[in-house]
Simulated scan of single mutants.
Amino acid sequence: MSQEHSAPPPRYLGFVAGMFSGVAKNLVGHPFDTIKVRLQTSDGRFKGPMDCVLKTWRNEGLRGFYKGCTPPLVGWVIMDSVMLGSLHTYRRFLKENFFKSDAKLPLSGHCIAGLMSGLTVSMVAAPVEQVKARLQIQYDGKTKQYTGPVNCVSQLIKQSGIRGIYKGLCSTMIFRTNFVFWWGSYEIFTQWFKTNTSLSNPAINFWSGGLSASVFWIFAYPADVVKQVIMTDDVKNPKFKRWIHAVKWVYETRGLKGFVRGFGPSILRSFPANAAALAAFEAVMRTLH
Rank of each mutant, 00 (worst) to 15 (best):
G68L: 05
S200I: 00
C170N: 08
M173F: 10
M231G: 02
G14S: 08
S6R: 10
Q136T: 14
F99C: 07
S108Y: 09
F179R: 14
V284C: 02
Y186D: 11
I230Q: 11
R254A: 03
V77P: 04
M231A: 06
D233I: 01
Y139V: 07
M79Q: 14
G168Q: 06
R11L: 08
R269D: 13
W76P: 08
V53N: 04
K144R: 15
D140S: 14
V124H: 12
P31Y: 07
G141F: 02
S81T: 06
N151S: 13
I78G: 11
G68R: 14
W76H: 15
R38V: 07
F32D: 01
D102Q: 14
I35D: 06
F259R: 09
H88P: 00
L94H: 01
V124M: 13
K227C: 07
M285R: 07
H88F: 02
E4H: 11
T177I: 11
T34Q: 13
W192C: 06
D224T: 11
V260M: 08
K132S: 12
T287N: 12
M79P: 02
R176G: 08
T70F: 15
L115N: 10
L115D: 07
L13S: 03
K239N: 06
R91V: 00
G210D: 01
S154V: 05
R58A: 05
R176Q: 14
Q40I: 13
K194A: 02
A223P: 11
G85P: 07
K194T: 00
G85I: 13
L268D: 04
G75W: 09
S122T: 01
N274V: 00
N59R: 15
G114A: 10
H110Y: 13
G18P: 04
V229E: 08
G258I: 02
N97Q: 13
K227G: 01
